[in-house]
């Protein structure tokens, strides 16, 4: 369990983190979302003990990070932003170094190293200097060093940044696998990642938490939540639809005539009304679906509210 209470951090005049409180329990995968410079990395750096908070407290499985930094660090696995590693070392030597510092030795160390090397498929590059690796392999080396000691808590700063879609998928599978034994905090600005791996998401803007909930709960805050997408055979039926109860707005697709998005008023379930309208009028519909809501829209709305519309 990680407990964060009233964390504050400023750099000179710039307020990086302002009064962030969080509790993350085992089994949770928390996604920290936010625009660049919102305070995601600073928050993670304070949890890992790299930066000292100006005010507030971080506890990791009962250890206070200010009073017992070494205990906290040995319980955490951390992938810093950009997955830094000693570029002149080869992969094997680097992972061996981290494992040794983490207190592993002898047979146990060999087993764990073989384990993470297998899990992250690093065999083909074991003897190559890290500097010569592709971005995907570098990121995997960074992940390997973070999990070599099987930490109960993992903190990953933008773990899939800069990876191609296949690699992203691979890393997300790995995160889901690791989530069975560890609590995980990841930061990202990729909203699809939240859907893919997170059981809970917070949105940070200007150093403050502006939303906290499951990805589905966040989507419900979108004006598109429950919106009905409909493809009619031809244009011209908008007026008929507009008088249905509960419709707030209709968006039409300029490229595809007859393709409409019906946006509900808050609290209305639009789908039954639309279904009835279709059957009553005997219209042949080519597509009909209900939107869950758009995380990116919630994200924009919440983070721009904070910075003002011009930002």
């Amino acid at each position: 369990m990680i407990e964060v209470e009233h964390l504050h951090k400023r750099f000179g005049d710039f307020v990086a983190v302002e009064d962030i409180s969080l509790t993350i329990r085992p089994g949770e995968v928390l996604g920290i979302l936010g625009p660049n410079g919102a305070g995601k990395t600073t928050t993670m750096r304070m949890i890992t003990g790299y930066l000292h908070p100006d005010r507030g407290r971080v506890e990791v499985f009962g250890h206070d990070v200010t009073n017992a930094p070494l205990q906290v660090k040995s319980l955490l696995g951390y992938l810093p932003e950009g997955a830094p590693a000693y570029g002149e070392m080869n992969v094997r030597a680097f992972l061996d170094f981290v494992a040794s510092v983490r207190g592993l030795r002898g047979r146990k160390k060999r087993e764990r190293l073989d384990g993470v090397i297998g899990k992250l498929e690093l065999e083909p590059v074991l003897q190559r200097p890290i500097d010569t690796l592709s971005k995907g392999f570098k990121r995997r080396v960074g992940l390997a060093q973070a999990i070599v000691h099987q930490p109960p808590a993992l903190i990953l700063d933008e773990p899939t940044d800069g990876l191609d879609p296949n690699q992203k998928h691979q890393v997300r599978q790995l995160i889901l696998e690791l989530a069975q034994n560890s609590l995980i905090i990841i930061s990202t600005h990729l909203l699809e990642e939240v859907h893919a791996v997170c059981s809970r998401a917070i949105i940070i803007a200007q150093g403050r938490i502006v939303a906290d909930g499951t990805p589905a709960a966040l989507e419900r805050r979108s004006r598109y939540h429950g919106a009905v997408r409909i493809q009619l055979p031809a244009a011209g039926l908008e007026a008929e639809l507009a008088i249905l109860p509960g419709i707030a707005d209709i968006e039409s697709d300029p490229m595809l005539p007859g393709r409409l998005l019906l946006i509900p008023k808050a609290g209305y379930d639009l789908f039954p009304a639309v279904r009835d309208w279709i059957s009553q009028n005997g219209i042949e519909v080519l597509e009909l679906s209900v939107e869950r809501g758009r995380l990116d829209e919630v994200f924009r709305q919440l983070t721009l509210e904070e910075t003002g519309p011009c930002a």
Binding site: L70, Q71, P80, Q145
Partner: peptide, 14 residues
Amino acid sequence: KTGTLELLLTLPVP
């Protein structure tokens, strides 16, 4: 410069 400072100082090393 390379960011490994953060890596090193978040390992359990005094």
